[in-house]
Write a protein that binds this DNA or RNA. Structure first.
Lengths: 231, 231
DNA sequence: AACTATATCTCGTTT
DNA sequence: AAACGAGGTATAGTT
């Protein structure tokens, strides 16, 4: 990877046409030929970029451009899609290059899936006498995380989240509305279970008669004794 | 902005938990405190990141970590959302810093809007005797780019794109279906107009009885004599 | 500020 | 390969 601080202007032509006026920026040229142009703020999205596959070539500086102060023109193109990025360099302010090699990649912990799994095993956390009906209980609008029956045999739909926010409450509300139309299941109550429940989400949930259950992931993992399952 | 090539491992905890094992990467620290961790390939999206607002602090290296070869720990946190990125530095391979200042920002050329405008003026490109009904003709599912009447007085809906791809044909199809339910308008035929029409899009359009019209932006701009409009 | 629609969306999974 | 849905979506426009 090569990173360059440079005074530059950038033109993109492809799915749209876009232009960056002359200013100092960071240009990142990756091993696969892809190029990212970043400013000193904003989000993780570059101002302008070209994704692989593409070819990086240093093209000729026209007399007219040279007169305007351009010292180099970098052309990054994808012949197939007809996308092209043209970077006019006025001045290089700093530059660095390093071989990084293939990255081992991001490992997502999948805490939500794991929480669901653990709660299915430790369903008594919901209340004594609770029995699991099934995980990923199917409905027409998608699966409910957990369906259980309480000690009185009443159905309870559980939505499991790592972080309990309003979206999750809305989701569970939609499930409950649908499930309660089914005479074989109704009445179905709801539990919103999460490691952390935001105050707004809690208020909304309780206002709708949905119980909130804060889960202690660490404790649940501790209880989930691997040896118990193996032997 | 500070850019650092370093051997590092990265932990993110927030809306999900994610981990990057030890490897050489590029770390970008922007003026607003946001941090991006990039590998040498892939898309413009960093492997892991923290968006502003957040605070960058160099935290203490625990004895245990130091023993494992960690020389620094960078903590990037957003107290409000409870998101945090922890970067363990094993070795710095290169580093550079530069003040870039505020970026003037990306200017999108708006070729599509301009094409629509030009075609509205040069509506005879569709066929002689064609008259403009209106631009941005309203429907319940959004405005149709151009509504015209052909020489026989029949309505024609025109979808204008810079690049004609399948999505655009689908969009026009939805408009046509809706418009043809209106007895005051029906029958409404369709024209898919673009600077470039992809083969798949052309096949789909023609299969649905939608005419394809390739626009020459340069020629249309040339015809759009500014002097004619000013004097 | 909240909500909506878009994106050069990206990215993964499934068909 | 194409279609579909989710995203730590981000971002711009509108109410």
């Amino acid at each position: 990877m090569r990173v360059v601080f440079a005074e530059c202007s950038v033109d993109y032509s492809g799915r749209l046409d876009a232009y960056l006026p002359r200013a100092p920026r960071l240009i990142m040229i990756k091993a696969d030929g892809s190029v990212l142009v970043h400013s000193d703020g904003g989000s993780y999205k570059p101002l302008n970029w070209m994704s692989a596959p593409c070819t990086f070539t240093e093209s000729e500086v026209l007399a007219e451009e040279a007169e305007a102060g351009v010292t180099a023109v970098w052309l990054v193109a994808n012949a197939k899609t007809n996308d092209a990025l043209s970077i006019k360099i006025y001045e290089i302010l700093g530059e660095m290059e390093q071989q990084l090699g293939q990255d081992p990649g991001l490992i997502k912990d999948g805490v939500e899936a794991h929480l669901q799994e653990l709660l299915a095993e430790q369903v008594d956390l919901v209340g004594s006498g609770t029995r699991l009906v099934r995980r990923e209980f199917p409905t027409a609008i998608g699966p409910v995380d957990l369906m259980v029956k309480d000690e009185d045999g009443q159905h309870v739909a559980i939505e499991v989240k790592r972080r309990g926010e309003i979206d999750g409450v809305e989701q569970l509300t939609r499930y409950l509305e649908l499930l309660n139309r089914d005479p074989l299941l109704a009445p179905v109550s709801g539990i919103f279970a999460a490691q952390e429940i935001k105050p707004q989400a809690r208020v909304l949930a309780e206002d709708r008669g949905i119980r909130c259950l804060v889960l202690d992931y660490g404790a649940m993992k501790g209880t989930d004794n691997v040896e118990d399952r193996l032997f």
